[in-house]
Design a protein around this nucleic acid. Structure first.
Length: 835
RNA sequence: GCCGAAGUGGCGGAAUAGGCAGACGCGCACGACUCAAAAUCGUGUUCCCAACGGGAAUGAGGGUUCGAUUCCCUCCUUCGGCACCA
């Protein structure tokens, strides 16, 4: 029977206290060791830790611990992304100040996190909502402003006219888009807001050289930025020579076929150019386009609609007068908000032209056909061929490549530049980063507006601009900063006269774009980070988090780093060298976990019942980390049993009761010991590799397998007479367990009488010689089917293996006296005979 | 529609470099222990014919190969992203 009862509560709290007291996980600069900065995305302090947090934090924790045992000086910090809408919305409901609620939640979550037994260095904790943090968020805003990267622009937000406030996307409900709070239909409202010129870095952001990031993330970012090469072409308005309209096109080689132009209904020029007789129809269409938002967008029937403005433009390549229409299939937010329409070679333009009986002029024809005939076209032609009806450029070859790789596009680009009509141009779907939020609970934008001197940054010595605490919560959700009687009143940094503060706060992605820098020195007050810490720890070596941040946070943080690099604040082109994403833990029903569905798994309950080590082991074991899976409450029993059986293996000592009679001969036990040692080192090799590759589930299964072997080996006498092999097995086993299940590993390490702490041990080295098999067993296939197997000495030659296999009775039976057609010994792993 | 990821037992999943499919675990079945149960330990557990033995099987179909979960082509399903992008 087990001498000592496995009491997870006692063991876990004992070691957690000791590790904390000993500062075992404190990460300090140590130039004698290589550093490893392991970063995992910081949580929003929602109130309670859920199992998803464990899934995102524990496997990276085990890997950080592994790296530490491999000899690296590891920093694994944790903090809170503490600004944001939920706390503000809650405040509007119950009046509890977001500051109070947020910091209460943080305390609660920190306490819960400590039960994980993770190696977080809490002395490096950073909280984005604390003034010592957001002082520097504000400072960074000013640095970007000084770099010329911040600017103001009118931009539409979703606005509730009843609540008099901006709504976030999740606050707009239903197909009719009404306010979540009062049900009023939401309108678009143009507000003057702050932007960062992220698009200035678009090309650089498409370059992933030197970083080890998942292909999936790189593809998502590439598609998000969506670079397209083409040309900008100038068109004149026929009735008004001074008005120029620039269009972007990816097909400048079809310019001669542009038979009309289409403006987005919101285009500012529409009002100017519309002729009086078309005014009513245009206004009507504009109003209708403004009303239809998501609803119409999602409509399956994509019937093109539009109206004629009465105005004409001049096609600069052939001076043709072409009508200007407006249509909602042209977006103000993409390109220049106006297109040249080439119905012969664009499907949308074709459909539009057919509907409104606009001319179709083909300017590319397939090489094989003698003539292009507009009347016979029943679809736009987008294939390759040659240019026709295009003046001097007739006969130029056209292929389906984009940009200059296409000879026709290259020819037209040169021609346009030469004539001064247009120029080569690149367009992106990616937009500048909208920073302004009409909210209270965020970092204030440190800008002051003076009637004379306009916008100026708050001087450094006045940072941070702190959020006022005496604020009023209107049930409407209007920003309390606007309503505060005095807060916005200040003086102009230039002239000292009365001026007003910006009352908008920053997007929280701003806070999370640099938190990896704040961890370096969270309480440092002479700058955003301590240079010495920066020089030692940066860049981040391993960054882990959910795939859902692929296009927002991860792109913002890369942009931010590059902007800081150009400001001379940081070095290197990328902030995070390696990125890995975990999947999602779903509810037991296979749905996303949510309070409303009632399928949320609370880790507290599991820790209490089974202990942190068992939960940690199961978190690693139950799914592929990069995939995620639905939670299975029953499955945890397997991990619990593993932990208990390990405990029993170490603390129970049936070796004493195994009499020598059961150990038949010394040579036989020697064999058992040798086999045990082989298994130990094979497992070590596998576990080491799996840690390196983020394959956490097979680490646990390998350890389970080895434990099963150890039970058998001990039964066969491997542990008798204090054998060196058995001692080594125990020691290596605990070292391999230590990253995954730190508490029980530490307890059993001390039980064996080893010096504290198992977490300060070196990761063991694989004895390659010990992993070699004495003999190998090979399956023998006949015509692709396994019919028998042979065992040969490990050093047997291919010829010997063939000979042994062919001598088999089974093989002879199949051969029926004939010669085999082919005999293959594949990698000394299998014999394949073809008869 | 476009881009991406994934389809393996009842379930989660495993399978260096193209070489024994189903490691490890859950669940289930049977057995031991027990007055009994739980716990624990042991045995079995892809499916079909089932006795030996044989056959089929990694979403479907095809191809390359002595040999394919793995490589190639076509298709289906699920999930994620983008979507009138000029």
């Amino acid at each position: 029977m087990t001498d000592i009862y496995y009491n997870h509560k006692e063991i876990e709290s004992k070691w957690q206290k000791k590790w904390e007291a000993d500062k075992l996980y404190r990460a300090v600069i140590d130039n004698s060791k290589p550093k490893h900065y392991a970063l995992t995305m910081l949580p929003y302090p929602s109130g309670d830790l859920h199992i998803g947090h464990w899934f995102s934090m524990i496997p990276p924790d085990t890997r950080a611990r592994f790296m530490r045992m491999k000899g690296y000086n590891v920093m694994f910090p944790m903090g809170f992304d503490a600004f944001g809408l939920p706390a503000e919305n809650a405040a509007i409901k119950d009046g509890i100040h977001p500051m109070k609620r947020t910091f209460q939640n943080i305390d609660r979550m920190r306490t819960q996190m400590k039960t994980m037994g993770a190696m977080f260095d809490w002395e490096r904790e950073a909280i984005s909502a604390s003034p010592e943090y957001y002082k520097w968020t504000e400072w960074f805003f000013i640095q970007l402003y000084k770099q010329g990267l911040a600017y103001r622009k009118m931009s539409a937000v979703d606005w509730c006219p009843n609540c008099n406030t901006t709504l976030a996307r999740e606050q707009v409900w239903g197909d009719d888009r009404h306010c979540e709070r009062c049900g009023t239909p939401v309108i678009k409202k143009d507000l003057d807001q702050w932007f960062f010129k992220a698009t200035q870095y678009a090309d650089e952001l498409l370059n992933f050289d030197g970083i080890d990031w998942p292909e999936r993330v790189k593809t998502l970012q590439t598609n998000w930025i969506d670079r397209s090469e083409g040309a900008e072409v100038k068109f004149q308005i026929a009735s008004n020579q001074s008005e120029l309209i620039i269009v972007f096109t990816t097909r400048p080689d079809t310019l001669w076929g542009a038979t009309f132009m289409v403006f987005s209904p919101e285009h500012p020029l529409v009002e100017k150019i519309t002729t009086p007789e078309n005014k009513a129809a245009v206004e009507e269409y504009k109003a209708q386009a403004a009303r239809q938002t998501e609803i119409q967008r999602r409509a399956v029937d994509k019937e093109k609609t539009g109206v004629f403005t009465g105005a004409y433009a001049v096609n600069p390549v052939n001076q043709a007068r072409i009508p200007i229409w407006i249509a909602d299939y042209v977006m103000m937010s993409y390109g220049t908000g106006a297109i040249m329409a080439v119905p012969a070679h664009d499907e949308r333009d074709f459909a539009f032209a057919k509907k409104y009986k606009l001319p179709i002029v083909p300017v590319i024809k397939p090489e094989v056909e003698s003539d292009a005939n507009a009347a016979e076209m029943n679809a736009a032609f987008v294939g390759s061929g040659v240019m026709v009806n295009s003046g001097l450029l007739n006969g130029t070859k056209v292929n389906t490549e984009k940009g200059r790789k296409n000879p026709s596009i290259a020819a037209v680009l040169d021609w346009l530049t030469q004539k001064g009509i247009g120029k080569e141009s690149v367009n992106y779907r990616y937009r500048d980063w909208l920073i302004s939020r009409q909210r209270y609970w965020g970092a204030p934008i440190p800008m002051v507006n003076c009637e004379i001197h306009g916008w100026n940054p708050v001087p450094d010595d006045q940072l941070p601009v702190t959020l006022p605490e005496d604020v009023e919560w209107r049930p409407t959700g209007e920003s309390p900063l606007k309503l505060h009687p005095t807060w916005k009143n200040t003086t102009c940094p230039v002239c000292g006269e009365a001026a007003v503060r910006e009352t908008d706060t920053m997007d929280t992605f701003m806070c999370s774009s640099w938190y990896h820098l704040r961890y370096l020195s969270p309480h440092y007050d002479k700058g955003p980070f301590d240079e010495a810490e920066y020089n030692y720890w940066m860049p981040v070596d391993t960054y882990t988090g959910g795939i859902e941040h692929a296009t927002m946070h991860l792109l913002y943080t890369r942009f931010f780093h590059k902007a800081l690099r150009d400001a001379g604040i940081v070095e290197g082109h990328e902030p995070m060298l390696q990125l890995r994403n975990q999947g999602m833990v779903l509810g037991e029903d296979g749905d996303k976990m949510s309070k409303s569905k009632g399928n949320v798994i609370a880790p507290d309950v599991l820790v209490n019942k089974y202990g942190a080590d068992s939960v940690r082991a199961y978190i690693m074991f139950f799914a592929r980390w990069e995939m995620g899976a639905p939670w299975d409450s029953q499955g945890i029993e397997g991990s619990v049993r593993w932990i208990r059986r390990v405990w029993t293996l170490f603390t129970d000592s049936p070796t004493d009761s195994v009499t020598d009679s059961r150990i038949e001969t010394d040579s036989k036990t020697d064999e058992v010991k040798k086999n045990l040692r082989r298994k130990v080192h094979q497992t070590l090799r596998k576990v080491t590799r799996d840690f390196e590759n983020f394959e956490f589930n097979t680490i646990i299964s390998s350890l389970m397998e080895l434990m099963n072997e150890m039970y058998k080996a001990r039964e066969a006498g491997a542990a008798a007479r204090a054998s060196a092999e058995w001692s080594e097995a125990l020691e290596i086993y605990l070292k391999m367990m230590a990253p995954a299940t730190p508490h029980i590993a530490e307890e059993l390490w001390s039980y064996l009488g080893k010096p504290y702490s198992v977490h300060q041990q070196q990761w063991p080295t694989v004895d390659e010689a010990a992993t070699k098999e004495d003999s190998i067993e090979l399956p023998v296939q006949i015509n692709g089917k396994v019919r028998d197997r042979i065992t040969v000495p490990a050093e047997a030659t291919e010829e010997e293996i063939k000979f042994t296999a062919l001598a088999l009775e089974t093989v002879q039976k199949f051969l029926e006296g004939k010669e085999p057609k082919k005999v293959i010994v594949a990698n000394r792993r299998l014999v394949s005979i073809v008869v």
